[in-house]
């Protein structure tokens, strides 16, 4: 029984990281994905902030799933999400103003990040709190990994650094385009290409196996 529960919990967690990865599979939350991933540290911070909001709001939504009237559920979810976003906003200001400036309006915009509302509506409102939060944690981790994948590439090419550490020495020629908005699209496109190619290959391998 307990092993079955852990497996299910593990599956719930892994769903967001791999099979339903919000960035590379569901292509949700593109606004922060493209905008704040100019460096790895920004990407991670954004990912963590979103993960926190995801876990907390999914937990609360799940707790209240029986008492929230159907007619006003979306409004209620938005209020709950907005609350935690405001809290995160304060926390980030308290931790580092530089980070707060770098992330800019995108912290507040977590409110309208469709990953969170989507999870609240599609999953947390039908699931008990614990699995809902595990699932939300997985989604948040998947989102963070997605952001990080973009942030690392863009920081290395656009700045020659990784987490602020210089990789190539002073003579590095930065690819300016990578820290500009088009660079976000290019890198995201390349990652999507890679994942689509992988999925295609896996599919055709499975077909061959079954035949």
């Amino acid at each position: 029984m307990s092993s079955a529960t852990t497996t299910r919990g593990w599956d719930e967690f892994m769903e967001g990281i791999w099979k339903q990865n919000p960035v590379f599979v569901m292509v949700l939350g593109m606004c922060p994905t493209l905008a704040v991933t100019v460096s790895a540290i920004n990407a991670i911070s954004m990912g963590i902030a979103t993960t926190f909001v995801l876990i907390a709001s999914c937990g609360l939504v799940s707790l209240m799933r029986r008492i929230v009237p159907k007619e006003v559920r979306i409004a209620t979810y938005i209020v709950i999400i907005a609350t935690f976003v405001t809290a995160v906003d304060y926390f980030i200001q308290a931790i580092s103003l530089a980070l707060y400036d770098a992330l800019g309006a995108f912290i507040q915009l977590i409110v309208v990040n469709c990953i969170i509302l989507g999870r609240a509506e599609a999953h947390a409102s039908k699931t008990p709190p614990l699995p809902a939060m595990v699932n939300a944690a997985g989604m948040g981790a998947g989102f963070t990994i997605g952001l990080l994948a973009l942030g690392v590439v863009r920081e290395i090419l656009g700045n020659g650094t990784l987490f602020g550490l210089s990789l190539f020495g002073a003579g590095f020629q930065p690819w300016v385009i990578m820290v500009l908005p088009p660079g976000g699209f290019f890198v995201l496109g390349t990652w999507l290409l890679f994942f689509a190619w992988r999925a295609r290959r896996k599919q055709s391998a499975e077909v061959t196996q079954h035949a």
């Binding site: 609360l60 209240m64 008492i67 929230v68 009237p69 006003v72 209620t76 209020v79 709950i80 907005a82 609350t83 935690f84 405001t86 809290a87 304060y90 926390f91 200001q93 308290a94």
Partner: peptide, 21 residues
């Protein structure tokens, strides 16, 4: 009642984090 409850909880969280930080 439900909406009041939700608002109450949310208000508490916001005020708490504002005070705390």
């Amino acid at each position: 009642k439900t909406l009041g409850l939700v608002s109450g909880i949310c208000g508490l969280v916001i005020v708490g984090s504002y005070q705390g930080t």
